[in-house]
C-alpha cells in the first residue's frame, strides 16, 4: 500500500513513513507503541503511589500537624500558579496532537514549544521560589535542618521534618519528571521542525503527550495534598 512513488523524495517524512517490518501496518505500530506507553505510565503511577502511601501513613500519624506545617512552610499561591502553568501546558500538548492530526505544521511546533516553556517556568518557580529559599532557611531535612521558630508566630512540631521530607522527595521526583518531559517535548518539537509528523504518522507526539499528561496528573494530586489540606 505504501509503495514509493517517483515524487517520494520531495514528500515530507510523515507522508513516506513506512512501518517497521514486524508490524502489519502503521495503525498496528501506532497502537502497539501507545499501549506500551500506557503500560509504562502504570509503572510511573505505581512509583508515585509509593510516595502517596507514605504520605497516607504519615498523615494518619500527624493529622493536624501536617495542616499546620503545610500552612507555615509552603506558599499555596506558588503551588496554585504552578498548577495553572502545568494545566495550560497539558492543554497545549493536547492541541499539538490535534495539529499533527490536521497537518497544521506551524501550530504543532508552536504548541510543543509553549508546553516546553511552561515546563521550564514550572521548574524555575520551583527552584527559585521554593527550593532555594527553603534550603537557605534550613528547611531541608537532614544535617542542615533547624526547627524554624525564629519568626515566633509558628509553634514547631516534632513532625515538621517528616512533613518537609515527604514534600521534598515527592516534589523533587515529580520535578525530575518535568525536566525529562521538557527534554522530550523539545525533541519532538525538533523533529516536528523536520516535518516528521502528520495525520498518518504522529506516534512520538501522541506518546510524549501521554507522558506529559501523567506528569500533570501527579501534580493535580500533589498540589492539594501538600499545599492546601
Amino acid at each position: 500500500m505504501t509503495t514509493a512513488t517517483p515524487t517520494a523524495s520531495t514528500l515530507p517524512y510523515h507522508e513516506t513513513y513506512t512501518h517497521q517490518e514486524h508490524w502489519r501496518n502503521q495503525e498496528d505500530e501506532f497502537e502497539g507503541a501507545k499501549l506500551g506507553v500506557w503500560l509504562f505510565l502504570t509503572t510511573e503511577i505505581l512509583l508515585f503511589s509509593g510516595m502517596f502511601c507514605g504520605y497516607a501513613i504519615l498523615r494518619i500519624f500527624y493529622l493536624e500537624h501536617f495542616t499546620a506545617a503545610s500552612a507555615h512552610y509552603l506558599n499555596w499561591k506558588i503551588g496554585a500558579a504552578n498548577t495553572a502553568v502545568l494545566l495550560i501546558s497539558s492543554f497545549t500538548v493536547a492541541m499539538s496532537v490535534r495539529a499533527a492530526q490536521l497537518n497544521k505544521q506551524g501550530q504543532l511546533i508552536i504548541n510543543l514549544l509553549i508546553s516546553a516553556v511552561c515546563g521550564v517556568i514550572f521548574l524555575v518557580v520551583k527552584l527559585g521560589w521554593e527550593y532555594y529559599p527553603k534550603y537557605i532557611h534550613h528547611e531541608l531535612p537532614g544535617k542542615n535542618f533547624a526547627y524554624a521558630d525564629h519568626t515566633g508566630a509558628y509553634i514547631a512540631n516534632a513532625s515538621d521534618p517528616v512533613f518537609l521530607a515527604i514534600y521534598w522527595v515527592a516534589t523533587a521526583i515529580h520535578g525530575f519528571h518535568v525536566l525529562v518531559g521538557v527534554l522530550l517535548l523539545l525533541w519532538v518539537a525538533w523533529r516536528a521542525g523536520k516535518r516528521h509528523f502528520g495525520p498518518k504518522h504522529y506516534t512520538a507526539v501522541e506518546n510524549v503527550g501521554l507522558y506529559w499528561h501523567l506528569v500533570d496528573l501527579v501534580w493535580i494530586f500533589l498540589f492539594p495534598l501538600l499545599y492546601l489540606v
Binding site: 495503525e27 492543554f91 496532537v97 490535534r98 490536521l102 495525520p199 498540589f223
Partner: peptide, 25 residues
C-alpha cells in the same frame, strides 16, 4: 492501515476542559 482515521478532538472541547480544570483548581 494508518492512524489517519483517528478521532480528532475539537478545539472547543479541549479549551472547555482547560477552563474547567482551572475553575476546579
Amino acid at each position: 492501515e494508518d492512524p489517519g482515521h483517528h478521532h480528532i478532538a475539537s478545539f472547543r472541547s479541549l479549551f472547555a476542559v482547560l477552563v474547567f480544570l482551572l475553575i476546579m483548581t
